[in-house]
Design a protein around this nucleic acid. Structure first.
Length: 288
DNA sequence: CCTAACTCCTGCATGC
DNA sequence: TGCATGCAGGAGTTAG
């Protein structure tokens, strides 16, 4: 569930509580959490001992702690990943996967992940169009909060696809950071049905959609993110409150706040799409 | 090259 | 009560 705003809340927390500290010991409690680290959990832990964290960075839904020496600890929260800053001695969380300790004896950094879709890995930093990115992030497009985000280029990329507009919006190589929640909210704001073929969108429509995505994610960030349960929290374990502002996502059966029609839920890519049947009518040639 | 289906995983809600 | 089923879904991998 964590999308760009939720990941950014976590990044800010890490920058406040972890940047500038030296790692002393790393404990991997579940090997799946480091499955993307090809040399294995022992290598992951050994190589981190003694390293300095110099920054906390993000692109789209990817997050990384930059280390001295052009390397990083790359993190993806997946569905249920949490980065928690906890005082030493605090009882282990049920789904604690990785623990990092620091030489100042201050609070630990814990990676907790119930559904295990997320994970940590070490990665080299490479230059991609002027940005220093971990190698596995090199193919991820800039997100709408990136100062160098190019809306015209994103519009072109979106309209070049031969698919439904929501699929394109979720494609992290076109524009990053948008997941199921903010895709549905952006489409509702722009009055577009999720199955609208991308190649039939005008440049203006595509631009409005991307602008709406940026707006809704900025508003969610200001509210501390969206939470439906205790799974998404900041580094202090607190939830955001943007779920109260959602117009369609998770609102099946409720009245559209714009026209009063009953919000519907459609099956989409083995999950769900929420929309207003009147504001977002099915196109003549839907791209299912 | 492009697009779309498949797959990984746990916990909770629901239905018989 | 207990068991089966469905659902939450990001993104790498595989298939066509």
């Amino acid at each position: 569930m964590p999308e760009l705003p939720e990941v950014e809340v976590v990044r800010r927390g890490l920058d406040t509580h972890v940047t500038g500290r030296r790692i002393t010991a790393v404990e991997v409690l579940h090997p799946r959490a480091t499955r993307r680290h090809e040399l294995g959990p022992v290598d992951f832990a050994d190589r981190l001992a003694g390293r300095d964290v110099v920054a906390a960075r993000r692109r789209g839904k990817y997050l990384w702690l930059e280390l001295d020496g052009a390397e990083a600890i790359l993190a993806h929260l997946g569905m249920s990943g949490q980065m928690l800053v906890q005082p030493e001695g605090t009882a282990d969380e049920k789904h604690l996967r990785v623990r990092l300790r620091f030489d100042d004896g201050g609070p630990e950094l814990r990676f907790v992940d119930q559904r295990t879709f997320g994970g940590l890995a070490m990665a080299d930093l490479v230059d991609v169009d002027g940005a220093a990115l971990p190698v596995p992030v090199a193919h991820i497009a800039r997100d709408p909060m990136d100062p160098a985000f190019d809306p015209d280029a994103a519009v072109t990329a979106l309209r070049r696809k031969r698919t439904g507009v929501k699929r394109a919006l979720l494609d992290q190589t076109l524009v990053s950071g948008v997941g199921n929640i903010y895709a549905d909210e952006s489409l509702w704001r722009t009055k577009l049905h999720w199955a609208r073929p991308t190649e039939k969108l005008s440049r203006a429509q595509a631009g409005e959609l991307l602008s709406a995505a940026a707006d809704v994610m900025n508003e969610a960030l200001a509210a501390g993110g969206t939470s439906f349960d205790a799974l998404y929290v900041n580094v202090n374990g607190q939830s955001g409150y943007f779920d109260r502002a959602l117009a369609v996502y998770g609102q099946e059966g409720r009245a559209c706040r714009r026209c009063g029609s009953v919000i519907r839920r459609d099956p989409f890519m083995n999950r769900s799409s929420y929309s207003c049947p009147k504001c977002q009518p099915m196109p003549k040639n839907p791209h299912i």
